[in-house]
């Protein structure tokens, strides 16, 4: 059955992904000048016709004698000569904004994994694991359309079930660091492949009736995620071809290769009164985390 699940999931995600890309409002084509929020530059000022109240005006009047006879005739009209303003310096032509180079991305993801190993049976009634993930990438050299990213990611999940009638829980943490190669055919879409080696921590617990406390089994193993996927830019701030920040939604599929983890059960959280007791360990079925994975992620790059 699990062989059918992944293709179904791929179809479901592809549909959703396509919807994301084409539902976004159309942006101008790459290379065109982006509309700017700043007001258009003001044109050069034209000479202003002087007016009476202009403080720069000079008023010229004829001299009046000290005791001049009263002239009953009407006064001559005043002549106003406006002072000539200095010419305004011409402003340079506006330069186009430089595209921002993004170097960092932070995101979160929902990672689904199919683990068919029987080692999972004690802790899960099915083969599915859904991880909550957080990741970050760093791009030392942002070259377009192809770029190389360093990626660091952390996954966590918790599974619980009945193990032969007893409550069982498995905590899985995964810490990975690897490389991602990204290709941007258009500014709104990225295709990527990732190779991320990781360390995986497995912590199983079973509440066994005989001991009264939990039996615990802890192990570390390694993993290597090989995935490929696509991401759609659903938001951007700044130039379209080089925005200051972008919001991406992506989908990756691939396979996780993992080493088998040897889990061995023995009492944990032993009360102090029982500290002297010696416990042997019970080997469980090795847990191999290998399997198909799918990851739906949301990230912000800047």
């Amino acid at each position: 059955m699990s062989r059918l699940i992944l293709p179904m999931a791929i179809v479901a995600f592809s549909t959703a992904f396509a919807g994301l890309v084409y539902a976004q409002p159309a942006l101008p084509p790459a290379g065109s000048v982006a509309p700017s929020a700043s007001p258009p530059p003001a044109p050069t000022e034209a000479p202003v016709i002087a007016e009476d109240r202009d403080p720069m005006r000079t008023l010229v009047t004829p001299a009046v004698p000290t005791q001049a006879p009263v002239d009953k005739s009407p006064p001559p009209p005043a002549v106003v000569i406006a002072a000539e303003e200095p010419p305004t310096a011409e402003k340079p032509a506006p330069q186009p904004q430089k595209p921002h180079k993004q170097h960092i991305a932070l995101g979160t993801a929902l990672t689904a994994s199919v683990v068919e190993s029987k080692g999972l049976d004690a802790f899960s009634a099915d083969d599915g694991l859904a991880f909550v993930s957080a990741f970050g990438t760093f791009t030392p050299w942002d070259t377009k359309p192809l770029s190389v990213h360093l990626t660091l990611e952390w996954d966590w999940t918790k599974k619980s079930a009945l193990a032969r009638g007893a409550d069982s829980v498995l905590d899985i943490h995964r810490l990975g660091a690897g490389l991602m190669v990204r290709y941007l055919p258009i500014t709104r879409m990225a295709l990527s492949v990732r190779a991320v080696p990781s360390a995986i921590s497995l912590a199983g617990r079973i509440k066994d009736a005989a001991f009264g406390e939990e039996l615990q089994a802890n192990a570390w193993t390694w993993g290597l995620d090989l995935t490929g996927g696509a991401a759609a830019r659903v938001g951007a701030f700044g130039l379209d071809e080089g925005p200051r920040a972008s919001i991406w939604i992506g989908l990756d599929f691939g396979y996780r290769i993992a080493g088998p983890a040897a889990l061995a059960l023995k009492p944990g959280n032993v009360p102090e009164t029982d500290a002297d007791r010696q416990f042997g360990s019970i080997p469980m079925t090795q847990l191999d985390m290998s399997g198909f994975i799918g990851r739906l992620n949301v990230s912000v790059s800047f």
Partner: peptide
């Protein structure tokens, strides 16, 4: 909305796949 639905679909599908041996479900006699 669509990614959310897709995520739920994926989770549901994966959660439902694969069966384990019945021996795990009940306590041993």
């Amino acid at each position: 909305r669509r990614p959310t639905i897709a995520a739920l679909l994926l989770t549901t599908c994966i959660a439902g796949c694969g069966d384990r041996a019945e021996v795990w479900d009940g306590p041993p006699p």
